[in-house]
């Protein structure tokens, strides 16, 4: 499988990568920005130089921007709509007898 776009006529093999940094082991990777690079290994090196000059993160991911599938504005209302009327998915929906001791 190759998701890389075809090289441009002038031989430019660079493409855009989105950068995700995990500041500490165990935390989630967070999107921090993007870099342009010729291929994933150079993208990782650029991402380190651009987004980790001060901290020493636990890990960095780079993902070709073109590989990301995102929600579309026009569909957002119907796409997320089912969540709105499901109050029973939250603890506040449920009643516990008043004299039940709180859990610590």
């Amino acid at each position: 499988m190759s998701s890389a776009p075809p090289a441009r006529a002038d031989g430019d093999f660079t493409e855009l990568f989105e950068v995700f940094v995990q500041e500490k082991a165990g935390e989630a990777h967070q999107h921090v920005g993007s870099v342009r690079a010729a291929g994933p290994s150079l993208a990782l090196q650029h991402a380190r130089d651009v987004y980790a000059r001060r901290s020493s993160p636990a890990s960095i991911w780079v993902v070709p921007t073109a590989a990301i599938t995102a929600t579309v504005d026009a569909d957002i209302a119907s796409f997320f709509e089912p969540a709105a009327d499901k109050a029973y998915r939250h603890p506040q929906f449920y009643r516990v007898p008043k004299d039940t001791p709180e859990e610590s």
Binding site: M1, G11, F13, A37, A38, G39
Partner: peptide
């Protein structure tokens, strides 16, 4: 530097295609 990076990536993509 830009030419070397392009050559490196070109080779990587060729390898990836041969492997697939």
């Amino acid at each position: 530097v830009r030419e070397a990076a392009a050559a490196f990536e070109k080779k990587r993509r060729q390898k990836e295609e041969t492997a697939a």
